[in-house]
Measured scan of single mutants.
Amino acid sequence: QTVHVKGVQYHFPNPEEAVKFALKVAKDLGGRVEFHGDEIHVE
């Protein structure tokens, strides 16, 4: 599972961890989380 944050990719073997990370980052940055297939983008 890959999380993209402002052009940087973070790889997580566990999808659940990836989602938790993405939600935390989005909250910290005041952004939103978008799901694109296997990828999660924080915009």
Rank of each mutant, 00 (worst) to 15 (best):
D38H: 10
E17M: 10
G31R: 03
L23P: 03
G30W: 06
D28H: 12
Q9Y: 12
P13T: 13
A22M: 02
E17K: 05
F21V: 03
L29S: 09
L23D: 12
Y10C: 08
V19K: 10
G7L: 04
A18T: 01
F12S: 00
F35S: 03
H36P: 02
D28V: 12
F12I: 01
I40N: 00
V19Q: 08
Y10R: 03
Y10S: 02
E34F: 15
E43D: 08
H11K: 08
Y10E: 01
V5E: 00
A18C: 04
G37Q: 07
E17C: 11
E43I: 15
V5M: 05
P13M: 12
H11L: 08
V5A: 04
Q1S: 14
V3Q: 00
D28Y: 12
H36D: 07
F35K: 06
V33L: 11
V3T: 01
K27L: 11
G37E: 07
D38K: 12
F35W: 12
R32F: 12
D28G: 07
H4M: 12
K6T: 06
F35L: 08
H11C: 13
I40T: 02
K20M: 09
F35P: 02
K27P: 01
G7T: 04
V19P: 03
I40P: 02
H36V: 12
A26Q: 03
F21Y: 07
E39F: 07
V3L: 02
D28M: 14
Q1N: 13
H4P: 00
A26D: 00
H36F: 11
D38Q: 11
T2H: 06
H41M: 08
F21C: 09
V19W: 15
D28P: 02
K20C: 14
V42E: 01
K6S: 12
K27D: 08
H4C: 15
I40R: 01
H36Y: 13
E16A: 11
F21T: 03
H11S: 08
E17I: 06
E39H: 15
V8P: 01
V19E: 08
V5G: 00
L23N: 14
T2R: 07
L29V: 08
A22Q: 00
G37N: 09
H36M: 09
F12D: 01
